[in-house]
Amino acid sequence: MKAGMSLDDPSSKRQAYRAKKQEDRQEMKHVKIDTQNTANKVDLPRKRFYRQRAHSNPFSDHQLEYPLSPGDMEWKLLYPAFYDESTGLMTKQVTIADIGCGFGGLLVDLSPQFPDKLILGMEIRVQVTNYVEDRIIALRANNAETSAYQNISVLRGNAMKFLPNFFHKAQLEKMFFCFPDPHFKQRKHKARIITNTLLSEYAYVLKEGGVVYTITDVEDLHNWMKKHLEEHPLFERLSSQWEEQDACVQIMRNATEEGKKVARKQGDKFIACFKRLPTPTII
């Protein structure tokens, strides 16, 4: 950590900002926002206060919170507007997941596209998750009249390890992998988010006909993801015509922070989408 960046420094602006937001978050996170108390608009969080290292080791023992099983997950805390108090049940299940959602650009743009679907972002970095959380809180508060952004939420988690703790078999319709960590070194390839063995787990939580979206600016990684998805018996590449007409592909290309950064630098963006095939007959 650079000098002057100490987290214990009481004069640190970032420290003060984070502490303030933490308090607000505790208060705001799980409340249903009524149209009455929207007199004062909530400021959108400022990204510079949430900076964190770009990488996180997926193999280390993070202090993570995750449900014992998908049935134990309290979704009402994440999507209060979709909780029916009379039955005590959720009216909708999460069907779209953005794995490694970063600063949440994709979530925010997908939200109006799929107003009747619940979309979940998963992110392993604490501060980045906090940012997305604050962003969603602000968006929900500022759009209370239209009840927009009630269908998106974020949680901190390690999707490579605990995806089956959150989702039932065949629960998801779409999974996004946008600009994942490329892990260039050969010996770090197991840390990549797309591997033969992990794909079986993604196929488990995806329903038949569900779609895996991948986008990256690193050609090597694109080839790697393509190769592994093509080799996996439960996935099939979707045609470029399909990609052209799909709304999510357009959003993915333009919405995410990484996507914008790449566009600014006029870099390439490689996209590949795959369909979850029907489970074959068991031998």
């Binding site: 089956p164 078999k169 787990e201 196929a203 439960l234 068991i282 031998i283």
Partner: peptide, 24 residues
């Protein structure tokens, strides 16, 4: 080591049949 027990088909091991949740 992550409290997971996974049931996969054999030899089609890429098909996960089930996860057994209960260990903490």
């Amino acid at each position: 080591r992550d409290e997971h027990i996974r049931v996969s088909h054999y030899p089609q091991c890429y098909i996960i049949d089930n996860m057994l949740f209960g260990h903490k």
